[in-house]
C-alpha cells in the first residue's frame, strides 16, 4: 500500500505588501512570487524509511507542510494512507515533528505531552502509560517535570519526537529530525528511526545531513530548487563500482615518490605521509609494489564507492548548470 502519494504537487508563494500570505485573500499590489515546489510526484511504500533530501530551499519543508495541512498546494494533490489531505482519521494515525520545534514554554514536559495526547482523544490511563514509555525512549524522564522554558535545543527536539509518537502512529513524518543535535543525539535519533521501522511503521523524513540519511534510508528523493532531481533505492542511485583507491604511504625519499606520483590522479602530502589517489586497481597495485621495493611503508589502502554526498554534489551541480 502506498502510504504517501503526491501528484504534481506545486506551491507558489505570493507575498503581499504586508509580507504575509493568506491563501486566497491576496493583495495584488507589488506581489513577489516564489516557486517553492514544482510538479513533485513521489510515493512512499508501507514500512520503508523514505528520505527527502536536498540543500536549504529545496522544497523539503514545503512538501511536508502541504502533507500536514499547514500550507495548501497551489496545484496538484496528495494522499495519505489513500485518503485526501486533511482527513482526521488519517491524522489520528500520523506523527509529525516540525523543523526546529518550539513548544509552549509555560508547560512542563509532562503537561505538554498530556495536552497533545488529549488532542488525540486518548483515554487518560493509556495516555499516561504512553507518556512514561516515550519519555524513557527519548531519554527525558529526568526532565518530565521541568518547564519547557528551560529545555535546550536538543531536549526540545527530543520532546518533539516524543509528541510525534504519542498516538502510536503508522506513519511518522519528521522534518529535519537531526538538526541541532550533537553526534551522539544524532545517533540516538537514527536508532529511534530504525526502531520505528522495525515496529512496522513508515517513516518519511527530510534532511540535509546526507551521511545520516545514507545510513538509514531505504529510498530517497533528491530535491533541488523545488524540483525532483532523482528518486530511487540507495544502491540504485549510487554506483556500487569502486571508483578510486586511496593509498597512504610513508618513509619514501622524494625522488622515489615521483615514480609513485606518475600514475596517481591526485597527491596529498602531509608531514611524513603522502596520500595518493588512483582510479585503476592495477595502478594501485603497481604503486604498492614500487613503494615496498624502495623501503617505504604502506599505511593504508582504501577502495572508495560513491557516497550520497558525492552523488548529491555531482547531480546538484549538473542541475544548477543546466538551469543557469
Amino acid at each position: 500500500m502506498k502510504v504517501v502519494e503526491t501528484f504534481g504537487l506545486s506551491k507558489t508563494y505570493v507575498q503581499d505588501v504586508l509580507g504575509t500570505e493568506y491563501g486566497r485573500i491576496k493583495f495584488r499590489l507589488r506581489n513577489r512570487k516564489v516557486d517553492a515546489l514544482k510538479d513533485l510526484s513521489f510515493s512512499v511504500e508501507q514500512g520503508e524509511i523514505f528520505g527527502l533530501l536536498g540543500p536549504n530551499g529545496a522544497g523539503k519543508t514545503t512538501t511536508i507542510k502541504i502533507l500536514m495541512g499547514i500550507h495548501f498546494a497551489s496545484r496538484g494533490t496528495a494522499t495519505l494512507m489513500g485518503r485526501p489531505l486533511g482527513d482526521l482519521e488519517v491524522k489520528r494515525r500520523i506523527g509529525f515533528l516540525p523543523e526546529n520545534p518550539y513548544f509552549y514554554d509555560y508547560l512542563k514536559g509532562y503537561e505538554f505531552l498530556q495536552y497533545y495526547g488529549q488532542l488525540y482523544g486518548m483515554p487518560k490511563r493509556r495516555l499516561n502509560a504512553r507518556i512514561e514509555e516515550l519519555l524513557d525512549l527519548v531519554g527525558l524522564s529526568h526532565a518530565a517535570n521541568l518547564p519547557l522554558k528551560g529545555y535546550s535545543k536538543g531536549m526540545n527536539q527530543r520532546i518533539g519526537l516524543a509528541q510525534s509518537l504519542l498516538n502510536d502512529p503508522q506513519l511518522v513524518i519528521l522534518d529535519e529530525p537531526q538538526s541541532g543535535l550533537d553526534p551522539l543525539g544524532r545517533k540516538e535519533v537514527r536508532d529511534i528511526i530504525l526502531k520505528l521501522k522495525e515496529e512496522g511503521r513508515t517513516v518519511l523524513f527530510s534532511s540535509h545531513i546526507l551521511s545520516d540519511a545514507e545510513m538509514i534510508c531505504d529510498r530517497v528523493a533528491i530535491l533541488f530548487k523545488g524540483e525532483l532531481i532523482n528518486i530511487g533505492r540507495m544502491n540504485e542511485l549510487l554506483s556500487a563500482k569502486t571508483y578510486q583507491y586511496e593509498l597512504i604511504v610513508s618513509g619514501l625519499q622524494a625522488d622515489k615518490m615521483d615514480a609513485l606520483k606518475k600514475g596517481a590522479s591526485k597527491v596529498l602530502d602531509a608531514n611524513h605521509e603522502s596520500m595518493l589517489i588512483y582510479t585503476e586497481e592495477a595502478q594501485a597495485q603497481e604503486a604498492i609494489r614500487t613503494a615496498i621495493q624502495h623501503g617505504g611503508a604502506i599505511r593504508s589502502l582504501t577502495p572508495r564507492t560513491e557516497t550520497l554526498e558525492e552523488y548529491f554534489i555531482r547531480n546538484v551541480k549538473k542541475g544548477g548548470e543546466k538551469r543557469a
Partner: peptide, 14 residues
Amino acid sequence: ERKTIYTIVSKPVH
C-alpha cells in the same frame, strides 16, 4: 508566531 500551530494542525483537530 512560535509555530506551535504546526503540531496542533497535524493532530486530529479541525
